[in-house]
Nucleic acid binder design. Structure first.
Lengths: 161, 161
DNA sequence: AATGAAAGGAAATTGTC
DNA sequence: GACAATTTCCTTTCATT
C-alpha cells in the first residue's frame, strides 16, 4: 500500500487527536467525509493503523515511576526465551520488553508506585519468572519526554503491496 | 478526584479502544449515554485522560527498529540539562527520554529505519546535541511486547482532590 | 450530586455517479 | 473523489432519585 500526502496528513492528525470526528478530519485534509473515511478504514485494514487508545496520566493511575530492568536468562535457547516471554505477558506493570543485543538478554520498562512497590515486583515477580538468572534495575529520576506519534515525514510506501 | 469501579471500567475500555462511540461505551459500563459522557469529560478535564492517539505500526511507517541510547553530558548542571532537553524535543525520532540515576545521564529510545539510518542519526544529531560528552547505543533485536494500557486494578484516588 | 429519558442536531455510513 | 440518503450517534435539557 502506497501512502500519499493526504494519507500522511490523516495519520499525523489521528496520532495527535485519536478521537477526532471523521467530519473534522475530512475538513482538515480537504476531502469529503466519505473519501476520508474510506482512507482511514483502508489504513486500519492494512494494519498501518493498529488501533486507538486513550493516553492516561501515569501519576493519576498510581504508577508515576518507570524502572528499566535488564534481565539475563540462564540459557538463550528458544524454549527459554518463549517461556520467559509468555510469563511476562501476564504482568501488567511491564509496559515494554525488548530482546537486546549485547550484555543482557531483555530490557523491560515497568511502571510502579514507588521504590517499595518496585521491590515487591522485583522479589515476587521478576526474579521468579522462568529461566531468569540475573535482574538489574535502573531507576528513572524523571520522564523528560514521552511521545506516542511516530515520525511520518519521509514515509512513502508501506506494507506488503 | 476519586475513581469508582465504573470510572475504571471506562478507562480500561478507552485504553483498549480509544475511538469507541460513547453509546457503546455507555452500554458496556451499564450507564446512560449522558452519564457516561459526563464521566469521560470529567476525567479529561482532571487530566486523568490526557489525550487520545492512533497507534501506528512502526514497520509500516518506515521505522521498524528501536535503539536505546545512553547519553552522558559534560556537566550535570541545570543549564546543561535544560539545553540538552530542549534540543532533544525537536528530534522526532526520539520517542522516549528519561533522566536516569546511575552511570549515564539520559536514556533514550529512538526509532530508525535500520543500522545505516541510525548511524546517520548518531553522527549528525545525537553526538551534536548541546553538552553531549558520550553516546552509547544498544540495539534491540526484537520488540517482544509493547503495551499502551496502564494497569488500573488498584487505582482508587487520583489527582489533587 | 448523579442519573436517565427524550429531542434536536450532527456525524457516520452506504450507495450511486 | 463527491454527493445524497439513511442510520447511528452526540449533546443538551429537564425531570427524577
Amino acid at each position: 500500500m502506497v501512502l500519499d500526502r493526504i494519507d500522511r496528513a490523516i495519520l499525523t492528525r489521528l496520532q495527535e487527536h485519536g478521537r477526532i470526528p471523521n467530519s473534522e478530519l475530512a475538513a482538515h485534509v480537504h476531502l469529503s467525509e466519505s473519501a476520508c473515511l474510506r482512507r482511514v478504514k483502508a489504513m486500519e485494514e492494512a494494519g498501518i493503523i493498529s488501533g486507538y487508545t486513550a493516553i492516561l496520566d501515569p501519576a493519576s493511575c498510581g504508577r508515576p515511576e518507570s524502572v528499566f530492568v535488564q534481565v539475563t536468562l540462564e540459557k538463550q535457547t528458544e524454549p527459554y526465551l518463549r517461556a520467559f516471554e509468555e510469563a511476562l505477558a501476564t504482568c501488567p506493570q511491564v509496559m515494554e520488553c525488548y530482546l537486546m543485543s549485547g550484555d543482557s538478554d531483555y530490557l523491560l520498562r515497568v511502571v510502579v508506585a514507588g521504590a517499595a512497590d518496585y521491590e515487591a515486583l522485583h522479589n515476587r515477580i521478576l526474579t521468579r519468572l522462568p529461566g531468569v538468572a540475573r535482574v538489574h534495575s535502573s531507576f528513572t529520576l524523571r520522564t523528560v519526554m514521552k511521545r506516542t506519534a511516530l515520525p511520518l515525514a519521509d514515509v512513502v510506501t508501506v506494507g506488503g503491496d
